[in-house]
Each structure stands twice: as structure tokens, then as C-alpha cells.
């Protein structure tokens, strides 16, 4: 369509004006210039800077330019690194599993069981609103629930389920993952709901007419057609969890570690070069995970 118009316009423009109209490439770059500038200055340059500084050296108070592999050698030579990376992947995997199950169920309910569009939009908004409020406050708000004298413990005690308050509810891996699921399930709901809403209902009717049961429709029709949404949600959740440092620090009461905390601890000690080296490895890990996930979905088609 666009090409057709262009080929029709071109000779006419050439006849009418000797001056050539600016090419779409120049116009495109002109419009994209602010975007490119922001991303260049605050994304590309910082990544390059981190890569460079990861080879620098540090004293107790300052950092100095150098080209040495000490930071990486230390990183790869330490058991802590492998344990912490393993822990990070564990958080990502468990959170992914729970957000996927909950997110898929919620999206499925909204897309296929709510019949009026107004209600669909209203309930969908109800799910998204917490995303626009503060993550830190949402973390803090678990304290009265999970503490030794919190709601969960007093309820379980009064029902006689337990004899002594549970210690592992707050400041444990349990509370870290609970907070992750609480904060990030939304990132599953939105893309999955978006893909589900575009499924042609006649496909489902056809499956039902051909004698499929509810479960068969779900497993053989809806799930395969929802895969792109699941992949996009997965990318969001996995990268957010892998890059996190504040949820783990706060919800584990500084007792558990992930890569983000490793970086932020180094920053706290002004050891920027070693923080940078860890950051480089983290970025490579995250990009590799995404690279694998992107093989399953073309994001540009899904918008």
C-alpha cells in the first residue's frame, strides 16, 4: 500500500519540484533523534562505561583506570559467585512458575469467562492498578501479615494449626518469592490476556463442535495460541527477577543473596570495578536467557 503510493507520488513530485523531498530515512532519523539521544546517553554509554570500568582497579577509597582481569578472575574464582548466580536462577524459575500459573488462570478467566467488554476492561484495570503504585510500599505492606506476631501466625495459632509462631514466613526465601509473585504476576496477566483476546472464537467453537472437552480445548487450542503472550510475560518476569536487588534485600532481611545484591554490596563499599564486572556477567546472562526466549516469539508481530 505504502510502496504503491510512493511509486505514484515519485514521478509527480519530480515533475512539480526540482528539489527532492527528504528521504524517509532522514525524516525517520530526525523524528527518532530524541529517542536515540536518550538511549545513547543513558543506556548505551552507561553499558560501555560499566564494561570499561570492569577492567579498572580499585583502592579502598577510589578507582583508577587500568586494563586488568583481576575483577573477573576474582569473580570466577569465588564459590560465592556460583552460589549467588544459582540462587538468582532459582528465584527466577520458581517465580516464573507461580506467576505463569496464576497469570494464565486470571487472563483465561477474564478473556473467556467474562462476557461483557466493559466488565473485562474494569476487572483488567483492577489487576493493573497496583503496577502504578510503589513497589517498596507493596513490600512493606507484607510485614503485618508475615511477622512473628503477624496476621498469618496469629490466625494459624488460633485455629490450632500450629503450636508456635512460624519463623520462616518473613525474612526468608518464602517471603522473597511471595513478594516477587505479588509484584510481577501482572507482567504475565497483561501479555497473556492481550493474546487471548485476539484468539478467533470460531476456532474454539470448531473444537467444541468436533467433540473436544473443555480441557482439550484449553490444552490443544488456547494454550498453543497463547504462546507468544506467555513468552513475552516470561521475558518480563525472568529479567525483572534476575535484575532485582531490593526485593531480595528487603524481604529476606539481608539474609539471602542474589546477583543484584552482590552488585549493590560492592557499590556500597565503593568497589565500582568489581561491581561492574559482576554487572557485565549479569547482563550477559540476562541477554542469553532472552536470546533463547526470543527464538520462540517475534515481539514486533505481537504489538
Amino acid at each position: 500500500m505504502t510502496e504503491q503510493t510512493a511509486s505514484l507520488d515519485a514521478p509527480a513530485a519530480a515533475r512539480a519540484k526540482p528539489r527532492r523531498a527528504p528521504s524517509r530515512h532522514a525524516a525517520g532519523w530526525l523524528l527518532a533523534a530524541p529517542l536515540a539521544a536518550v538511549l545513547g546517553l543513558f543506556l548505551v554509554l552507561p553499558i560501555l562505561m560499566i564494561a570499561i570500568v570492569s577492567f579498572w582497579g580499585a583502592t579502598e577509597f577510589s578507582i583508577y583506570p587500568a586494563f586488568q582481569f583481576d575483577n573477573y578472575a576474582f569473580l570466577f574464582g569465588s564459590d560465592v559467585t556460583y552460589r549467588v548466580f544459582g540462587n538468582t536462577l532459582k528465584y527466577a524459575l520458581i517465580t516464573w512458575l507461580f506467576t505463569l500459573l496464576i497469570g494464565f488462570t486470571v487472563a483465561y478467566y477474564l478473556a473467556f469467562h467474562i462476557r461483557s467488554l466493559t466488565w473485562q476492561i474494569a476487572l483488567f484495570l483492577l489487576c493493573t492498578i497496583p503496577f502504578w503504585t510503589s513497589n517498596i510500599i507493596r513490600m512493606i505492606s507484607w510485614i503485618p501479615f508475615l511477622g512473628r506476631e503477624g496476621i498469618a501466625n496469629s490466625a494459624l495459632l488460633s485455629w490450632g494449626v500450629i503450636d508456635a509462631p512460624l519463623d520462616w514466613l518473613l525474612f526468608s526465601d518464602f517471603s522473597v518469592i511471595l513478594a516477587f509473585v505479588h509484584l510481577y504476576t501482572l507482567f504475565m496477566v497483561v501479555p497473556i490476556f492481550n493474546t487471548m483476546m485476539r484468539i478467533d472464537t470460531s476456532l474454539i467453537e470448531a473444537a467444541v463442535d468436533a467433540g473436544a472437552t473443555g480441557w482439550q480445548v484449553l490444552w490443544h487450542v488456547i494454550v498453543p495460541l497463547t504462546k507468544p503472550g506467555i513468552m513475552i510475560g516470561t521475558i518480563f518476569v525472568v529479567t525483572l527477577v534476575m535484575g532485582d536487588f531490593i526485593t531480595v534485600r528487603f524481604m529476606s532481611g539481608s539474609q539471602s543473596a542474589n546477583v543484584g545484591r552482590l552488585i549493590s554490596n560492592d557499590i556500597g563499599l565503593l568497589q565500582y570495578p568489581s561491581a561492574s564486572a559482576t554487572a557485565v556477567i549479569l547482563l550477559i546472562t540476562v541477554l542469553m536467557v532472552i536470546g533463547i526466549l526470543l527464538r520462540f516469539v517475534d515481539i514486533r508481530k505481537e504489538l
Binding site: 538511549l39 543506556l43 553499558i47 529479567t239 549493590s264 540476562v286 514486533r300
Partner: peptide, 27 residues
Amino acid sequence: KRFAGSGLLFYLIVTALVIPSILVSLG
């Protein structure tokens, strides 16, 4: 306008979305 280099810019946008926040802060 599908200008030359728009693919690269698109991947930068995706990178901005998935890069761990602390890297931006640190960099």
C-alpha cells in the same frame, strides 16, 4: 517510516526494558 537502522533502535528499546535497573543506575 521503517528507516534504515530502525531495527537496531528497536532492539535498544527492548534492551532498555530488560536491562537490570541497577546497571543503569551504576553506569
